[in-house]
């Protein structure tokens, strides 16, 4: 009986939290900005902090994942005498799946956790309260620029990840394993379509950006303003963000590429 009661109360708490999160997102997105110049100034600062500072981890990860993919792909394709198709395999895998998914997972770990911790610490040190008491809405000043910066940066980082991954794969496949450069690029060009593969990958990255950044800013704003509370909120951001990316990926892949 107690377990049923526990499941019921946990479900209700989760639903209530989801509802609060929805209202929070609505209020963040639909408010009048003070002025365009102030919006851009705050946004550029956040794009630097969320996006530019994430470039190193994205580029290095993309490079190594592209190189590993080329190695693995070559080993398997060579068994069927199709090693020339490694470029095709590399591009489709990166653009459709690994680019958006791995970038979003890295983004959740690097940028979103920092967003939660930063907002949580602002709450704990009464900086959010002081904004409110000054008549400055924290949704406009703190939350919205961070959320929008996440929506802009993640799709761009995903493109950078895929591009660097393809270059890394080319380095291994053409430069090291001796695949002909012309075949590598021409097969890739023949099989990759902008409207389906590239655009769908960007749409996926955008959906992941909404989910992870929303979770990050909401967890930061709602966290208990103590060191343990901020720690728990940061962990929740990474765990919930990663799980939502993987679940969304399945749904989006089924909708975009499923043949049913």
């Amino acid at each position: 009986m107690k377990s049923i009661q526990y499941i019921g109360s946990a479900s209700l708490a989760w639903l209530a939290s989801f509802g609060r999160g929805g209202l929070f997102l609505f209020q963040v997105m639909f408010h009048k900005p003070k002025s365009l110049s102030s919006v851009f100034s705050l946004l550029f600062k956040q794009i630097y902090s969320v996006g530019v500072l994430s470039l190193v981890i994205i580029i290095v990860s993309g490079l190594f994942i592209g190189m590993v993919l080329a190695l693995q792909g070559y080993t398997i394709l060579a068994q069927f005498g199709s090693e020339q198709a490694v470029g095709q395999l590399l591009a489709l895998t990166l653009l459709r799946e690994l680019g958006p998914v791995v970038t979003a997972l890295l983004f959740a770990g690097r940028a979103c956790s920092a967003l939660t911790a930063e907002i949580g610490l602002m709450k704990a040190t009464e900086q959010l309260s002081s904004l409110e008491m000054m008549g400055v809405d924290p949704y406009r000043r703190i939350i919205a620029p961070r959320f929008i910066a996440g929506l802009i940066c993640l799709p761009i980082l995903s493109i950078v990840f895929s591009a660097v991954g393809i270059l890394g794969g080319e380095f291994v496949a053409v430069g090291w394993l001796g695949i002909h450069g012309g075949s590598f690029w021409s097969l890739m060009q023949q099989s990759v379509f902008f409207s389906t593969d590239v655009v769908n990958g960007i749409i996926k990255a955008f959906c992941f950006a909404i989910a992870t950044t929303w979770i990050a800013v909401f967890q930061g704003y709602e966290c208990e303003p103590t060191s343990e509370g901020i720690g728990r909120a940061t962990t929740r951001t990474v765990v919930l963000g990663s799980l939502s990316i993987l679940a969304l990926d399945f749904i989006l892949t089924a909708a975009m590429f499923g043949d049913f």
């Binding site: 209020q27 040190t125 009464e126 900086q127 309260s129 002081s130 409110e132 008491m133 000054m134 008549g135 400055v136 809405d137």
Partner: peptide, 23 residues
């Protein structure tokens, strides 16, 4: 309402116990 509350708060200054400066 939230909007009116923020308008009223423009008439207020508050010194917090912790100072609450933006770091």
């Amino acid at each position: 309402s939230r909007k009116d509350l923020y308008l009223v708060r423009k008439k207020i200054g508050m010194l917090f116990q912790s100072g609450a400066l933006f770091t």
